[in-house]
């Protein structure tokens, strides 16, 4: 039982990060009908922006590094929306997919040229300390990462459910033409959606960098793949559904690691994907028609 609870906690920590990246995917896909393959690499840029701030200004602390991650990721997200997504929005989904994939490749390889292809140590901004919660032991960094990701997910949920712009975001997701005809500036909401997703990715990226103590030019690949699976498994009808699936995938991975084999960990998400889509092709919580 202790092992189960420990793996549950480990799974929720990693799953919460998947959920944050997956929400970024889901926001872009649901609102803009764009599969933003550059999103995981915007996450990576956020991680490096935080790293640079932490190395350059080590005395400023974790909060400032987080802000640097937000600004770095937000800037790249904004530029991506202006230069690639906005001009291609409304065209065939494959065009934006290829466009964002191109940006993803440029970001990955560009960062590999600048920082090198190998992992770089992330400054230890949070002390190495253990926290006991009943039979479960987590590091302070894990607890912090989980808390940050959970806060981000809660903020997104509050945003889409309780604010006028959030309501407009959901309105665009369901019926973009009707939303426009009722006074919603669709282009502006789309722009903000990409910015929001990118900035959230930046926060999560710094947190993950601190958690694992390293940054890597290709780190987005792993998180992007898992997050994309989360979105497909959940469907894009409810953002909260994507969050729940993100947490669940992390949990399943942790269980596989704990009870089966760590080498099968990354395959677990694919088994879940195949199993769910076989029975529910529109995802567990349903999808909007595109």
């Amino acid at each position: 039982m202790d092992l189960f609870l420990q793996q549950l906690a480990n799974g929720l920590v990693i799953g919460s990060t998947y959920a944050v990246v997956a929400i970024g995917f889901a926001l872009a896909f649901t609102v803009l009908r764009v599969i933003n393959f550059a999103h995981p690499d915007i996450f990576m840029v956020g991680m490096f922006a935080g790293l640079v701030a932490a190395v350059e200004w080590p005395a400023l602390g974790f909060l400032v590094v987080l802000i640097a991650g937000v600004l770095g990721a937000g800037f790249v997200g904004f530029a991506l929306e202006r230069t690639v997504i906005a001009p291609l929005r409304g065209r065939d989904v494959l065009m934006t997919l290829i466009g964002t994939l191109g940006v993803a490749i440029m970001l990955q390889n560009g960062m590999a040229v600048i920082a090198g292809p190998d992992p770089i140590a992330y400054p230890a901004l949070i002390p190495r300390r253990f926290v006991d919660i009943g039979p479960v032991t987590l590091t302070l960094r894990q607890v912090l990462n989980f808390a940050i990701c959970l806060a981000l997910l809660a903020l997104v949920s509050i945003y889409v459910r309780w604010t006028p712009w959030g309501r407009a975001t959901r309105a665009i997701a369901e019926r973009p033409d009707v939303a426009a005809a009722f006074g919603v500036n669709v282009a502006r909401i789309c722009q903000f959606t990409i910015l929001l997703a990118s900035m959230m990715g930046g926060v999560a990226a710094v947190s993950v960098g601190v958690l694992y103590g390293s940054a890597h030019a290709f780190v987005g690949l792993l998180y992007g793949l898992k997050a994309f699976i989360c979105m497909l498994v959940a469907g894009n009808r409810y953002f909260e559904g994507v969050m729940v699936v993100g947490l669940a995938i992390g949990f399943v991975e942790a269980l596989v690691t704990g009870y089966v084999s760590s080498s099968l960990r990354d395959a677990a998400a694919f088994f879940v994907l195949i199993g769910v889509l076989y029975f529910r092709p529109n995802g567990l919580f349903g999808s909007y028609a595109t």
């Binding site: 006028p164 309501r167 959901r170 369901e174 009707v178 939303a179 009722f182 006074g183 919603v184």
Partner: peptide, 19 residues
Amino acid sequence: QLWNTLTVLDNLKLGGFGD
């Protein structure tokens, strides 16, 4: 063509979004 996943209240509020 309502926003079917939104509540009645949210649909009505969105009617005045531009105001």
